[in-house]
Design a protein around this nucleic acid. Structure first.
Lengths: 113, 113
DNA sequence: ATTTTTTATATCACTTAGTGGCATAGATAA
DNA sequence: TTATCTATGCCACTAAGTGATATAAAAAAT
């Protein structure tokens, strides 16, 4: 009787990235190197860190993508007035907004369309 | 002397998607079918519409991706308490949050990592 | 050259999403 | 049994986000 795979029941990987991570974690678990309990954290660990963007960096990012404030607002599904305030330093982007800015910076416009 | 390309000066496409759109728009402009002025709108028009997500749909999306509330929060760069409130119907996701949920639904986890 | 449109800036008051803490309870795995 | 993860509930607070509108500069049309 084969040793059971530890993750399959609850966590069936749907994406290539998580798939690879699950397999690795599964191997580690069978080797006794990690507890199954630890695994749920790996899902979070594989996330690219979200970098902060200050006012000028946001403007630079927008210019680099050749977008107007209005179009960037549409891309991020927010309002032009919000974009303006970010670039004026009056407000700072929320968590999810920062995440989108990071995606835009790393993957380009196609990555967030 | 060749007819000038209408967009090249200001708008040099960086991404495949916008590149194709710019070319198309440029052709249309040279054919006299659209004004250059109209072009900036095409940037916005090519965005996938952002669908609303209600409480149950958010939970379904999360379950389908096999994520806990905590991990989904990490993915979207928000707090677990926010996810909880979405799924409880106490709060509704902000614009950028909705955008991220849409990306997750359409592209899967790899699309937002 | 002048007219029109886009783009960006600015200010206002308001709404509401988001946060953090903490306590409870169920499910799961050691 | 014991420990951990997961989810829920309640609280009050903060700050991001919105919408309207007015102005000015930049860009592109005629």
């Amino acid at each position: 009787m084969q040793p059971k795979r530890i993750i399959e029941a609850k966590q069936k990987a749907r994406t290539p990235l998580l798939g690879a991570i699950y397999e690795t974690a599964d191997d580690l678990a069978r080797l006794g190197l990690i507890e199954k309990r630890t695994m749920s954290r790996y899902q979070a660990l594989c996330l690219a860190p979200v970098e902060p963007f200050d006012a000028e960096q946001i403007r630079l990012l927008r210019k680099r993508q050749r977008l107007s404030q209005t179009v960037l607002a549409a891309v991020l599904n927010t309002s032009p007035s919000t974009i303006r305030k970010w670039e004026a330093g009056e407000k700072r982007p929320s968590g999810p907004s920062l995440k989108l800015l990071n995606l835009l910076a790393r993957k380009g416009l196609d990555g967030v369309v």
